[in-house]
Design a protein around this nucleic acid. Sequence first.
DNA 1: TGTCATCTGTCAGCTCCTGACATAAATTAC
DNA 2: GTAATTTATGTCAGGAGCTGACAGATGACA
Lengths: 229, 229
Amino acid sequence: MSQPGLRERKKQRTRLALIDAALELFAAQGYEATTVDQIAAAVDVSPRTFFRYFATKEDVALSLPVDGQEVMLRELAGRPAGEPPFTALSHAMRAVVTELQRGDLTETARFLKARELIENTPALFAGSVRRMMENEQRLIAEIARREGSSPDDLLPHFVVSLFTTVARVGFESCHPRSIEDLPAFGERLEQILSLAERSLRPGWDRGPVDGDADAPRVHGDADAPRPGD
Amino acid sequence: MSQPGLRERKKQRTRLALIDAALELFAAQGYEATTVDQIAAAVDVSPRTFFRYFATKEDVALSLPVDGQEVMLRELAGRPAGEPPFTALSHAMRAVVTELQRGDLTETARFLKARELIENTPALFAGSVRRMMENEQRLIAEIARREGSSPDDLLPHFVVSLFTTVARVGFESCHPRSIEDLPAFGERLEQILSLAERSLRPGWDRGPVDGDADAPRVHGDADAPRPGD
DNA sequence: TGTCATCTGTCAGCTCCTGACATAAATTAC
DNA sequence: GTAATTTATGTCAGGAGCTGACAGATGACA
């Protein structure tokens, strides 16, 4: 595992070069005003090649945060089994931030640059939300697995969506001030997480409390067997 | 105010014709497989004219739900001042559903058709969420106004985002089952609203409880002066 | 009826994105 | 080290979404 081969290294280099060129151009003249041809030209690559690295122009700006989501999912999978869902999600999110802090400086700078660009560009923000939502499905599946509940169950959906929302509000609340550094962002995350925890009833993410059997069923209601099956 | 004039009526007719033609084509052959030219041809109108009615191809599918958001905002503005934020939002949402039920049948059918299409088309669903989030800003402003808090305040953001999330999970939970009728949708909404209320601490949407002054400040912290300014 | 505002069609063109094919480069086999 | 094979890249053609500009048609209004 010494080296991943010259070919692979070259690919990684062009990929990063494309991202850097794109971020720079986007920042300088705006996202929509920048064409794919310009980005490709800046890296001295054909426009067709750009689309072999990124499916859409949007993707080049969102690729870094998307990588973050992968880390998030991995971290979540590594959380201890007994941990309540919301707690596990919170810890996974924190792990992503600390993971980023460990990376080298140009790497975190790139990430912050991308993040700010996304936050200030409606089209990119929309795309970011879309990715978040796609990722949400995977988080839901993981939480459902941990809790041993059906993927049709409302509760995992609710928990994950609520968590995602909290994280998003954390991001948004930094805007229009830019996120100057990771530690500041970490603090912000703790604040909003704490607000969420103070707003929610203890044990809410584990379903209805016992002895509440007469309450209208919501937990597991999505495809619950109806009387008569 | 007898009639809005022949010109205006004609415009409304073309607009609805475009929507109907689009929904039909989308349902028949899929959203991406349908071109704007086809839609325009179905209404016997030039493609250029299509774009004078709808800024994007997406818009023709989302226009109806967007109208619903306008109603939602109006209803929210009409809620009594003393009502807690989350309650006011819930009532406004309910009002939208009942408003829809009062409309004529072809109207609600159109809405349901659009809703189902959106739910089953990732690209449209993402667009729908994006509109929802754009609208969120206006809801936040309204809630902040009602509560007399700064628009930078975290709490209104949190409350509105959480509400939007709850509503969205309600929508999503209907899929892949289609929403056959409005009453069923109303019931679903009540279920998820009830789940949310049972998960949250009483008074959460009005800020931290008194006597908790030592807790880390979050409420109103968004642009708090830092030590050293 | 005639003037004016507005809506519509036509056309030309840009940008995003894709399939197909040929070329160049790296990897592997010999 | 050379040949064979895989894989990345460039070139080309083209479809689809979307826009500006101009000319003609059609309601509005006096």
